[in-house]
Design a protein around this nucleic acid. Structure first.
Lengths: 339, 339
DNA sequence: CTGAAAGCGCTAACAA
DNA sequence: TTGTTAGCGCTTTCAG
């Protein structure tokens, strides 16, 4: 089917294409009468603006935000995406999303791809926050803002939005200590990610501050997904003396691990108290309900989206370079209710 | 910063722009030597193709799939989106997603927006499957495939991918009957959606086929989210005689309702057996584990994405118009283990 | 308030 | 194999 152009409309109405253009793009230099006539004809003829032509003429008007995230199938990511979509759409932008599957290679491909697409801005949750990130250099050279969130690289020269993971882990561990725990297991994440590194640091710091000696044997590196849970539970059961508290880096593995331990006869929180991370829905499904750090994705998604829209709109000469640090909040539930 | 164009490269290398174009777009009519020279210069000069110009010249090459979905923050939608993204990206397309928030108005706006974006295809989970859907007419007129999934309108002239909801509900209800349930509550969804209408029908059909009289009082219309759970539990507790089975249209409300009932002293499955829908992760977190219909989103997302990519690639003259119906599968767990 | 004309960056027919 | 040329649909000066 042949597309209708402004020339078709112009010809039909016996006016110039420029007038049609003015009417279509809400330009002021046109009388209300002709505008109305044009708009009506455009509608009747099934006209749609050709954004390719429009963008070819005047650039930087793509109204498109790219999102690259390391994970797509988790409660956290969907909440973040949900917020980002909402904010960005309200501002009149669309989002185009890419999944990097925790792969640095894929992230580089995605970054190149979205650059070709000429996104006006890029929101990224890094696949890994060690390793170089010069695949964003071309964005910076072209004054396209790149904002990192959740997983960031601290030396990245741009805006970063993060949770204070150190403090969150510190609070979680301190909470367990205050509830009388002395031998606290930490279910750790991959130490290639600052997020997990900071959580381990916060855990250690809380121990040190309360005069508890740090023991590497209590830090478990089996992974943090559902599949790792039975192994983690096994590790915990085999410890002697057994631990009296567990701080896990996410709710999913905390919950699955709790279930495995309960099946083996462990009482929670009496024998072992648990604290998770994220405030996933399932933390309120498990019995006892899981004490956790509130970090569900919605807030951070909303903030990073708002900030980047603001950056795009104000187009200031000087590149923004700052970090927004969200304060963690511990949600205390039954799983740590002892003493 | 000024963009580098093929003319800049041509000038620098003292060749014509068409040669540069040929090299960039992998055209065969060019010698290996010049191609190499051009590609190298392009790289050095920081050239990136201008897709606006390219698409203006030769249309239908946007390599973009639009996705409109009524809900974004649920396990099902994450999984569907995850699969769609994976398939579509493998095929070399990007996806641009829009959330219609269960609003028909928003869906119309999104459809118009993505049409402007000139997506090559549109995947839609309808906000509501009653009401008209002529906001897709312009796609059809322009030969842009629109594929519906999950929530579809049966008279839509195009490809539809659905679960056999009638059969799924029939299986779930029959299972409860076979486990000895006689007074089975159905937690129903909004009857503006064929998905929920069919599930209610399947429920009724199973009752009828097993000689159980249908009672409208056993069908609850309080909503199907976590907030509705306490009300649903209250309704169930106030029934006299009380029910011995519950079939809910999703796992979330089933699980939350189970918890409310357990808190009130109801034993599951001894007093009341439960069957949910979706096979959400939380169905394996709740105790007892929830029997449910496996409909997690991954499979349906993968199918609809594969089909639309295939349709786009083959560009057949005749518009495809068929329905793919997924066979439901009941996952039997402890929550219905009685008799 | 309206029209004429140039040009955004690219591709593809045609010519050499 | 390479170059010349026209034009995709639009916006935007500049004239009137």
């Amino acid at each position: 089917m042949k597309e209708v152009t402004i020339y078709d409309i112009a010809k039909k109405l016996n006016i110039s294409a420029s007038s049609v253009s003015r009417a279509i793009s809400n330009n002021t230099n046109i009388s209300a009468a002709t505008r109305k006539k044009i708009l009506q004809a455009a509608d009747e003829m099934g006209y749609r603006v050709n954004n390719f032509a429009r963008n070819l003429r005047k650039d930087n008007n793509n109204k498109l935000i790219g999102v690259i995230f390391h994970k797509l199938n988790s409660q956290f990511s969907i909440n973040a995406l949900y917020s980002i979509e909402k904010v960005v759409r309200n501002a009149g932008y669309d989002i185009i999303i890419c999944h990097s599957s925790e792969s640095h290679e894929q992230e580089i491909i995605n970054a190149g791809n979205l650059f070709q697409r000429r996104v006006d801005g890029l929101i990224v949750g890094l696949s890994s926050d060690v390793g170089n990130i010069n695949h964003f250099d071309k964005y910076i050279e072209n004054d396209i803002p790149v904002f990192l969130f959740d997983r960031v690289k601290t030396d990245f020269p741009g805006v970063k939005v993060v949770l204070d993971n150190f403090k969150a882990a510190y609070m979680a561990t301190t909470h367990l200590i205050e509830r009388g725990c002395k031998r606290i297991v930490h279910i750790a994440g991959k130490q290639t990610s600052a997020v997990y590194i900071d959580r381990l640091k916060g855990y250690k710091h809380a121990l040190a501050e309360h005069g508890i000696k740090y023991s590497p044997a209590l830090v478990l590196h089996r992974g943090v997904d559902a599949a790792a849970a039975p192994l983690l539970a096994q590790d915990i059961l085999e410890m002697s003396p057994g631990p009296d508290g567990v701080f896990a880096v996410n709710d999913l593995c905390a919950v699955m691990c709790m279930k495995a331990l309960q099946k083996a006869g462990v009482k929670i929180p009496e024998d072992i108290a648990f604290v998770g991370f994220n405030n996933d829905v399932m933390s309120t499904v498990i019995e006892p309900n899981l004490t956790t750090v509130n970090y569900s994705g919605e807030e951070i998604g909303e903030i990073v989206a708002k900030m980047i829209i603001d950056e795009i709109r104000t187009k200031n000469e000087t590149k923004s370079n700052y970090t927004i640090t969200l304060q963690p909040e511990l949600i205390i539930r039954e799983s740590s209710n002892r003493k």
